[in-house]
C-alpha cells in the first residue's frame, strides 16, 4: 500500500512581496511511495529535493496539488493543527547540520525532547529514550554533553530523538553530507537497520551515489520535477541523463559506460564483485 501519494504537487516560495518572480521550486510532482520502502532522492543543490522532503512532513504546505499520507488527505485547508502535529510525529526528520538540531546539552535530555512535546507519560519517555539510544548504539553516551560528540555521533543522537517519537517514516535530509567516511558508514548502517528490521519507511536525500545504490528505489529530481525514477540499476543505466543534470554515477558504472563502445556490456552495473565477474567473462571470451 502506498504510504505517500502525491498528485500534481507544486510549491513556490512567495517572493511577490520582494518583487521577485515566483518560481516553482516543486513543479507538478506526482508519485507514490510504498510503506516500508527505502527510497533515495537524488538531485544537485537547488534541484528542489529538500523542499520536497519538507512538504512530506508538512513543514511546508504545498501551493497546489493533493497530498495523501497513510490513506488520509492532508493537503486541504481544513486540516487542524493537531493533525499536522500528528503527521510530524509519524514522519520524523533528520537534518544536515548536526549542530542545528540538538535542542539540549545532554544526550538523553535531547532524545526526550520529542516525546516530552507529545505529552508522553514520564515513565514511558524514560523507556523510549533508553531503547532509542540502544538502537543507535549510543547508550553509553546517555549522560554525555552533546557538544563533545563527533558529527556522526550527533547525527545518531538526532536519529534517536526521532525514534523516541515512534515514527512510521524517517526523512534524512542530506544527513550524511557533513560527515566523514566513518560517520557516513555508521549512519548508513543505522538507516538500513531501521528500514530492514524496524520496517520504518526511509526517504534518504543525498548526492552521494555510493549511498544511493543501497536504496530499493532512486528518484532523481531536477528543476522541481521528477527526472528519473526506478531501481538503482535502472537509474544508473542512464549515465548520459544523469551527467546532464550534474550528477555522478559510481566509478564502476562509469567505467562500464565508457567501455561500452568496445565491449558488449550490461548497463547500470553498481556492484564491484558482480561487475568484475561480468567484465572478466567478456574479456576472456573476447566478445568485442
Amino acid at each position: 500500500m502506498a504510504y505517500f501519494e502525491l498528485e500534481n504537487i507544486s510549491f513556490s516560495y512567495d517572493e511577490s512581496a520582494e518583487g521577485g518572480e515566483t518560481k516553482k521550486v516543486i513543479d507538478g510532482v506526482s508519485l507514490e511511495i510504498e510503506k516500508g520502502s527505502f527510497v533515495c532522492v537524488l538531485g544537485h543543490n537547488g534541484s528542489g529535493k529538500s523542499t520536497l522532503a519538507k512538504i512530506l512532513n508538512l513543514v511546508l504546505t504545498p501551493t497546489s496539488g493533493r497530498l495523501v499520507i497513510g490513506g488520509k488527505e492532508v493537503s486541504g485547508p481544513e486540516i487542524s493543527e493537531d493533525e499536522i502535529f500528528d503527521i510530524r510525529r509519524r514522519i520524523g526528520m533528520v537534518f544536515q547540520n548536526p549542530d542545528n538540531q540538538l535542542v539540549t546539552t545532554i544526550v538523553e535530555e535531547d532524545v526526550a525532547f520529542g516525546p516530552e512535546n507529545l505529552g508522553v507519560d514520564p515513565e514511558e519517555i524514560r523507556q523510549r529514550v533508553d531503547s532509542a539510544l540502544q538502537t543507535v548504539g549510543m547508550s553509553e553516551y546517555a549522560k554525555h554533553s552533546t557538544h563533545q560528540l563527533s558529527g556522526g555521533q550527533k547525527q545518531r543522537v538526532a536519529i534517536a530523538g526521532v525514534l523516541a517519537m515512534q515514527p512510521e517514516c524517517i526523512i534524512f535530509d542530506e544527513s550524511t553530507a557533513m560527515l566523514d567516511p566513518i560517520g557516513r558508514r555508521d549512519i548508513m548502517s543505522t538507516i538500513e537497520y531501521l528500514n530492514r528490521e524496524r520496517e520504518i519507511t526511509v526517504i534518504h536525500i543525498t548526492h552521494n551515489m555510493d549511498e544511493a545504490v543501497r536504496a530499493d528505489r532512486i528518484i532523481v529530481i531536477n528543476d522541481g520535477k521528477i527526472y528519473l525514477d526506478g531501481t538503482a540499476k535502472e537509474v544508473f543505466s542512464s549515465v548520459e541523463k544523469l551527467r546532464r543534470v550534474g550528477l555522478d554515477v559510481p566509478q564502476v558504472t562509469d567505467l562500464f559506460y565508457d567501455l561500452s563502445p568496445y565491449l558488449d556490456l550490461p548497463s547500470g552495473v553498481i556492484d564491484i564483485e558482480e561487475g568484475a565477474a561480468v567484465l572478466a567473462d567478456r574479456l576472456k571470451n573476447g566478445k568485442a
Binding site: 567516511p181 566509478q251 564502476v252 564491484i272 567484465l279
Partner: peptide
C-alpha cells in the same frame, strides 16, 4: 589509516582476482 582506495582501483583488483 582508516581510509579506502578509490572504487575503480578496488574494481581492477577484483578483475585481477578473476584472472585478468
Amino acid at each position: 589509516a582508516g581510509l579506502s582506495i578509490p572504487q575503480v582501483t578496488a574494481f581492477l583488483a577484483a578483475l585481477r582476482k578473476n584472472g585478468i
